[in-house]
């Protein structure tokens, strides 16, 4: 098992490296010259050339790339903002906890509200309870998040004045953002849990449990639910990605000084180090989360754990035990 974890961590590195290279290249080859933006439209050619040399932007692509990678991986340095000259990494470290709190809050709410909703719907399938839950879930995944956020702000902050409309401070500042950001997640989780529950309820081993004389409650919670939750864990990682993405936009709606606002400000100002740094950092965070989710898998499903332990050699196309 330890071998598997180590192997996965090692495998993560080339992925992050390649992602970094990819992002760097995309920004490098995109149209627009940052130097001109920084100096303004009236700079002379001499000034531009001088500035470019000063910033190291006249070096060949490979040199710049190498320099960037070296600084990132060995010094945790993502460069400095073109405009403010402040360290990008430093700024990310200050802002990231806010974004993380927001994203984690959304995920927690998604699970805590979404899973019971899905279980209820599955247990009362085809009754009005089920239909109501699923209608809400459908609406939940169809409404644009930031529009919903704005409507919430209009109602609860502007008209009723119960909650603040923007900024950070105490926990009350996170209420509206997390609610707005969770709606998608709750809806998705509810749908996922419901369908996975329904599948499990029909399975043979549930019939066996019934034939042994277990009560319906025991069957539901001890026999069905653990199996139904396996696919739910599977999409947790995915849902975190969605929460992160949602954070990008919602931070802008609520003016939360997290990575989302940092990134959008950087894009607007063509401040490449900021944009590069944020995206690569988020990709790294995401990879780590996916690894953790995959590990969580092993604790829940003994079949997966066995599979991980077996994985020394490359996975062959035929060798999947679970798809019987």
């Amino acid at each position: 098992m330890i071998r598997f974890i180590t192997k996965r961590i090692i495998l993560m590195i080339p992925v992050v490296v390649i992602v970094s290279i990819l992002i760097f290249s995309i920004m490098y080859f995109s149209p627009g010259d940052p130097v001109e933006v920084i100096l303004g439209g009236k700079a002379t050619d001499v000034e531009i050339a001088a500035k470019r040399a000063e910033m190291g932007l006249d070096e060949p692509f490979i040199v710049q790339l190498g320099d960037f990678l070296y600084k990132f991986f060995f010094k945790m340095d993502l460069g400095r903002s073109y405009i403010t000259q402040k360290s990008v990494w430093g700024e990310i470290m200050v802002r990231f906890p806010r974004t993380l709190m927001f994203a984690v809050g959304c995920m927690v709410l998604s699970v805590v509200v979404g899973v019971p909703l899905g279980v209820t719907a599955a247990v009362h399938r085809n009754t009005w309870i089920d239909r109501t839950c699923m209608v809400f879930a459908l609406l939940g995944i169809s409404l644009p998040e930031f529009w919903l956020a704005m409507q919430l702000v209009i109602i609860f902050a502007l008209k009723l004045g119960w909650l603040p409309a923007y900024g950070i401070g105490g926990p009350q500042y996170y209420v509206l953002p997390v609610i707005a950001g969770s709606v998608h997640g709750i809806a998705k989780q509810a749908r996922q849990t419901r369908s996975s529950m329904l599948e499990v309820i029909r399975s043979d081993y549930v019939t066996t449990a019934r034939a042994k004389g277990h009560s319906e409650t025991t069957i539901l919670y001890k026999h069905a639910l653990p199996n139904a939750l396996i696919p739910v864990v599977q999409v947790l990682g995915n849902n975190f990605a969605i929460s992160l993405g949602g954070a990008l936009i919602l931070e802008n709606v609520f003016s939360i000084p997290g990575i989302g606002t940092y990134l959008t400000a950087g894009i607007a100002a063509r401040d490449y180090p900021i944009v590069r740094g944020c995206v690569i950092f988020l990709a790294l965070v995401f990879s780590i989360i996916m690894l953790l989710v995959d590990l969580a898998f092993a604790f829940i499903d003994p079949r997966i754990k066995a599979q991980y332990e077996k994985q020394g050699a490359k996975r062959k196309a035929t060798g999947r035990e679970i798809n019987v």
């Binding site: 043979d204 081993y205 449990a209 034939a211 026999h223 199996n227 079949r303 019987v324």
Partner: peptide, 16 residues
């Protein structure tokens, strides 16, 4: 009264 089912592959709970 107890029962033995036809398909052993799916009659047992995989996580217990």
């Amino acid at each position: 009264i107890s029962m033995v089912f036809q398909d052993p592959m799916t009659s047992l709970n995989p996580v217990i």
